[in-house]
Design a protein around this nucleic acid. Sequence first.
DNA 1: TAAAATGTTGGGTA
DNA 2: ATACCCAACATTTT
Length: 272
Amino acid sequence: MPELPEVETIVRNLREPLIGRRIIGVYVYWPRTVARPSVDAITQRLPGLRIRAIQRRAKYLVFELGSRSSRQPTDYLLIHLKMSGRLDVVSRKRSIDKHDRVIFDLDGGRQLRFNDTRKFGRVYLVADPEEVTGHLGPEPLSEEFTLAAFKRFIAKRSGRLKPLLLDQAFIAGIGNIYADEALWLARLHPLRRADSLNDTEVRALYRGIRAALKDGIQRNGASIDWVYPEGDYQNHFRVYDRTGEPCRRCKQPIQRIVIGQRSAHFCAHCQL
DNA sequence: TAAAATGTTGGGTA
DNA sequence: ATACCCAACATTTT
């Protein structure tokens, strides 16, 4: 479900209740949710570790864990929510939900519950987050992601823009909503070829990507269903989920086509 | 009922 | 190596 802005919002909201808490137990209800090292390993290794910091890399949540003696090597718990993953901090007295997959029991009486209807989400316990995130492209909102850097990356590609934006090895964190929104902002058609863009269009795409993601974060992400309730960006979509509705620039109806097994929404009149 | 859903990966083809 | 298609993962909602 969530893309970069939603995960960023989730991370910001989890810091207050979780940082400083100690994990005292782990319960796994759907073993395949534990990607690595194994169910046995996480249930044995996590208890006793304290949550030192929570960061985001692309769509991954990265929990930095440490024990009391700070000389011990740090462990990292990574969580990818995929399509329907949710993280709830609740009292341990709360009844277990049908879709709770992994529960982290914390000191202080509360629990972090990884709830995931479709079971696509995964947790990883690793010594180095790069083991999981090493293949990802640059963070689009980082300082290193300059226009000059973007020009270098896109110069190596030739495919259609929509799948390219969804390619996490090209840029990390963009999903179906923000890809469509970025292309509308850039006035570029989702089927345009990366190697057909002139300098002005590359710059427009760079700005569109950053603007869409920043706008999403500012509005706490997008909430389309029960999975992620706290956002407001869904009320500001320009194209996503607006098939047939008027383009906010030219009033022509928004089109929906399928590209690479995913829906793409765009304005055929002002995206060329 | 069929289709679609904010995601990723692996296999096969060209 | 890159591009692109399909299937798989699994469940709920429209």
